[in-house]
Design a binder for these strands. Structure first.
Lengths: 111, 111
DNA sequence: CAGATAGTTATACAACCATCGTACCAACCC
DNA sequence: GGGTTGGTACGATGGTTGTATAACTATCTG
């Protein structure tokens, strides 16, 4: 079952937390950047050439990124093609700004 | 020594990593949201009423947020007033999008 | 089938980290 | 000064996680 919710522009609280955790690790973040730089068809083996980590670690990080919804991965024979979900990235940053930028406009009797 | 670099719109690699880690923990993220919702003068004690954690934990998280540059904290007598750095938040989200949104414009070795 | 390549899974380990309790310091109020 | 409140520093602890090795599956090629 695919996770691609076709251009969703809203994130659940759980997905927001997952994305935050996924982006926290510098190695994983760099991996995400590499996937983004590669374009559409990006095999893990290609990525692995750029990072001094074992393939098990790559697989682990890719799984985390997919779980967070930050990338979309699909097998093509031996290869696993990864692609960054730009819409999810945009939704995450928007939610981040919304959560920290909004004053208590709701007037929810904070005191 | 204040960390406020007066409307900086660029983040160092280190600060980017620090912010990512700071935002990763759901509790700390919620704390940041609470600080943002409180407005300018936000004492830790006020925040503590909203979270079932010890004051030591609050202090720890606040320190992390300050270290990451996400909030600005200054003592006022007994109280520690915290304020969200909206500019840093904006810079972080912008950097996040820049790192994941840019294609390989250089067209380097497509094969 | 045999071999090579790409990726997954299981397990283990080390490092990190969120949390708490306690003790402590600083400021306010009487 | 004595008591209360707000916050910090230190130490311990339990949980999380990034990483590697090894064994495994799946695909491609000959």
């Amino acid at each position: 079952m695919k996770r691609r919710s076709s251009s969703r522009s809203h994130l659940t609280a759980q997905q927001f937390a997952l994305i935050g955790k996924a982006l926290a690790d510098p190695r994983r973040m760099a991996l995400l950047e590499a996937i983004a730089a590669e374009g559409e068809g990006c095999a893990c083996a290609r990525i692995r050439e750029q990072f001094p980590v074992s393939k098990a670690t790559i697989s682990h990080h890719v799984k985390e990124l997919v779980h967070a919804g930050l990338i979309d991965a699909q097998r093509d024979g031996q290869f696993l093609h990864c692609e960054v979900r730009r819409d999810v990235m945009a939704a995450y940053t928007a939610e981040l700004l919304r959560r920290t930028g909004a004053r208590r406009g709701s007037g929810a009797a904070a005191g």
